[in-house]
Design a binder for these strands. Structure first.
Lengths: 109, 109
DNA sequence: GCTTACGGTAAGCTATTGCTTACCGTTGCA
DNA sequence: TGCAACGGTAAGCAATAGCTTACCGTAAGC
């Protein structure tokens, strides 16, 4: 799976995105993080694994605790993707004009 | 569902994102669009419905054809969201320092 | 009119996802 | 050394997502 795909998928789930945004406030350990949500700790652990696979978060062990934090580089990747989309969307006026042609009809048979 | 949620979900599926990127080149009718992918036309139609619900595309009827095009405003919404995330992630150094404190352990009982 | 291109929607099936509980290894502390 | 905190992972389950085929309404062209 490409990076952007995994990242969009990771942020698609509301719970997982909420976890991501919680980490945005400050780094947190898994258990501490899980207290703030109404899903179990393993569920949070699995969400974190998905976010990690998408390179959206990093983590570092501190004793028995595992402290997760945002990986800014992951956000940067998404931002770059959307910037490309954005400039293309704005530069599309030419293509819009071209696309007003009448395409010949076809039989689906 | 919030706007950003629907948008992330819409772009999470590889096929749907490919459809979105195809429309980025120029507006297209449904059938024409479906020829370029190895899924059926109804599947494409359903993907377009999801993209439309996420305000990522618009469409306009032209006879029997239904021509879809990118909705730049949808991309703008996502861009704004990521910009907020980005600035927060960079301004997080203070929070990182704060988070190095030792949290008291707790019994899960 | 009749027919054909076009595309949205319903129904149904399978694969995937998100969740749970149960279990396990690791670390810190008395 | 024993025990408690912590968190990753496996197994299983219900809900959802994405796909298909079948069907339907609408607009164009003869």
């Amino acid at each position: 799976m490409t990076d952007a795909n995994a990242q969009f998928a990771a942020l698609a789930d509301p719970t997982r995105r909420a976890i991501f945004e919680r980490l945005m406030k400050h780094p947190m350990a898994v258990g501490e993080l899980a207290e703030g949500f109404d899903v179990s700790r393993p569920a949070v652990s699995q969400h974190l694994a998905a976010l990690k696979a998408a390179r959206l978060v990093e983590h570092e062990k501190s004793g028995t605790r595992n402290v997760y934090r945002i990986n800014p580089e992951g956000i940067a990747t998404l931002r770059r993707y959307l910037d490309v989309m954005w400039t293309r969307a704005l530069g599309d006026l030419k293509a819009v004009a071209e696309a007003t042609y009448q395409r010949p009809r076809k039989d689906r048979s």
